[in-house]
Design a protein around this nucleic acid. Structure first.
Length: 428
RNA sequence: GGAGAGGUGGCAGAGUGGUUGAAUGUACCUGACUCGAAAUCAGGCGUAGGUGCAAGCCUACCGAGGGUUCGAAUCCCUCCCUCUCCGCCA
């Protein structure tokens, strides 16, 4: 959520920057609502002040044993007028809040302006795609004999659910363990185990709600609607970031660095038809997530570090990747700046997203009311960052495809062998 | 799932309709005393918003949301959460 004062002070400037990310801010509508709010709020508060002082007089008069009937008559008509004003003001505030909650974050000045993913800026390529001396297979064909079982997944749960068996299941688990261990022991993150079901307030805090409800899985208790809506998490960014919701932190607690391995559930309503083959796009996938809660002055440095932590995983696994700075038109809703990491997938002969690392600035902190006491003793919003480190399912795909051998076996990356009892080759 | 108790400022804890945004203690900040510290004394010390050049003035907030009333932390309703006991369960 943006700072409403920023909109009041620089409406056209903000609108111009939002336009670069394809968001049309209705400045006339906002200005009109704001003007109306201002007069209505002033009028309401004047009436409230009057009511308060008269009510106080009644109390004093009663204490002196005087007749209060004349004063009561005086407030009589005040009541209806005030109630109407208060109701109108609440309605107006709700409108403004809803408008504000639907506005995406303003891109940082270092972000290239562009329409879509074709205008993203490649920062670097790491590693060299391997030359295969044989006909390569994609992860679906490679995985089938090793335990990648789409049919059973579909039988149990429908399309875009996958069962992993035997060696592939173990490899998948090893990847998650390896990532988690690396972030906790080398990168200074605290390991967190989080709930997978969250309240709607948490989703509002990180920005999934109200706009992106269609991407979520909603759950019920005993099949009944409850007063509080609950959803399966689409990423543990939600739970990790919301750990500080409503808090006023001490400056010396920052930065807070958290990591978790969790399943992620996405209904991806708009993506049918894309990546239908294989386990690139699933309704359920595992991810190791990194979140940082930082001092506002430190957030862009922290973004570089956090992205580096995700890159480190790819490097240790010796998977070729490229690092891309997303342009304004391709960034997520709450982000000020985002790097995507794309891993080389030989069967697709292209780089595919495996991590997305974003600095959300104060956007989520404002929604969550997550603050810290700054140097002047004032409460100030923190900045939040998050990044995948990495998407486990897609990493599994990348390992299968990049480490395949002519006989269909998979060489286990050296970094993973300790997690597989020293196993060097995965075969059927 | 059943029965009960409770949610008030950083913390503890008063307050059951009227100058209560909230006693008191504690923590914290400033000043006095001191060579310095402790102790003591005095003062300050919530959040959000409106308005104003500013000092200030005003409004809202006692888990959340509604209601009753001229007036609600206090009365009523709904929800959320915490604790205790029982049941069930991993």
């Amino acid at each position: 959520m943006l700072d409403i004062n920023q909109l009041r002070n620089d409406l056209d400037g903000v609108a111009a920057r939002l336009k670069t990310r394809k968001f049309d801010l209705d400045t006339a509508a906002f200005a009109a609502l704001e003007a109306e709010r201002k007069t209505l709020q002033t009028a309401t508060q004047e009436l409230q002040a009057k009511r308060n002082s008269v009510s106080k007089q009644i109390g004093q008069a009663k204490a002196r044993g005087e007749d209060v009937a004349p004063i009561l008559a005086e407030v009589e008509n005040l009541k209806g007028e005030l109630a109407a004003k208060e109701a109108a003001l609440t309605e107006l505030q709700d409108k403004l809040d809803a408008l504000l909650a639907g506005i995406p974050n303003v891109p940082h000045e270092s972000v290239p302006v562009g329409r879509d993913e074709t205008e993203n800026q490649e920062i670097l390529r790491w590693g060299t795609p391997r030359q295969f001396g044989f006909e390569i297979k994609d992860h679906v064909d490679l995985g089938a004999p090793l335990g990648l079982d789409f049919e059973t997944g579909a039988k149990l749960s429908g399309a875009r659910f996958t069962v992993l068996r035997g060696g592939v299941a173990r490899l998948h688990r090893a990847l998650a363990q390896f990532m988690l261990n690396t972030h906790t022991t080398e990168h200074g993150y605290e390991e967190i185990y989080t709930p997978y079901i969250v309240n709607d307030t948490a989703l509002f805090g990180t920005g999934q709600l109200p706009k992106f409800a269609a991407d979520m899985f909603k759950v019920t208790r005993g099949g009944e609607e409850s007063a509080v809506d609950q959803y399966l998490i689409s990423t543990s960014e939600i739970t990790l970031t919301n750990t500080v919701a409503g808090d006023i932190l001490k400056a010396e607690q920052l930065p807070i660095k958290l990591t978790a391995h969790s399943p992620c559930f996405r209904s991806e309503a708009g993506s049918y038809g894309r990546d239908v083959r294989g386990m690139i796009r699933q309704h359920q996938f595992d991810k190791v997530e990194m979140v940082q809660i930082v001092h506002p002055d430190a957030s862009f440095d922290a973004l570089e570090q956090l992205t580096g932590h995700a890159e480190r995983i790819l490097q240790l696994l010796e998977l070729p990747y490229r690092k891309v700075l997303l342009c304004t038109g391709d960034m997520g809703f709450g982000s000020t700046k985002t790097y995507d990491l794309e891993v080389w997938l030989p069967a697709q002969n292209t780089y595919r997203e495996i991590s997305s690392c974003s600095n959300m600035g104060a956007f989520q902190a404002r929604r969550m009311q997550a603050r810290f006491k700054n140097e002047n003793g004032k409460n100030e919003l923190v900045h939040t960052l998050n990044g995948s480190g990495l998407a486990v399912g897609r990493t599994l795909v990348a390992v299968l495809e990049n480490y395949q051998n002519a006989d269909g076996s998979i060489t286990v990356p050296a970094a993973l062998r300790p997690y597989l009892g020293g196993l060097a080759t995965l075969q059927a």
